[in-house]
Amino acid sequence: MNNTIKYLLITIIAGVSLYNAIYFKKLDEVKKEASNTTFNAKNYANQFFKNDVESFKAINASDFLNHINADAQAYAENNGHKLGISSDYNFIVEGNAIVLEIEEEYIVVELESDQQRLKIATDFIFGNAIREGARRANIGDYQNTMDFNNISVELNNIVREQILPPFLQEVKVSDRIYFKGAAKVNTKRHTNENMKVIPMLLKINN
């Protein structure tokens, strides 16, 4: 009788302590749960280009160049956006322009409003100009800074893979275009010569 109670108690204790200690789940489900909690920079970038780029308020490119050439520091502090402690300020600019030259890494355009010249990058699409110019993300919201960095990688990938190829297939010297894109200005070492706009939107208006 005593032994029966003893074995019953042992079985109950073992059952309670081992309950749910081992269980099986499908690997697909585990992976799906993990990906749901992981930040997806690609989706984030796709949503930005799909929903926000067209309507994003940009600075007129002629006004931008005039202000930057007059007093880059003061204009950048009031109208640009920088990441942390930096002299690199970022802006979103737009304009209508005529294509003057098509080079290996950029095209040179002349703004219709005042004939100032500007380079639009067509290669070496790197950096944070779009993310910072558009003020899309705050580094303090990301536990791992690499998630934050991946936003720029994915934004640039979209420009490289989706925005530029159809444009470059068609564009010719003398074409009239509309552009919207991100420009980075280093207030310590700014020259118009080394500034290029990373395009977010390109339309040929002929």
Partner: peptide
């Protein structure tokens, strides 16, 4: 305080 401040 700002949680993270990157320096260029």
């Amino acid at each position: 305080f700002i949680p993270k401040t990157p320096i260029a």
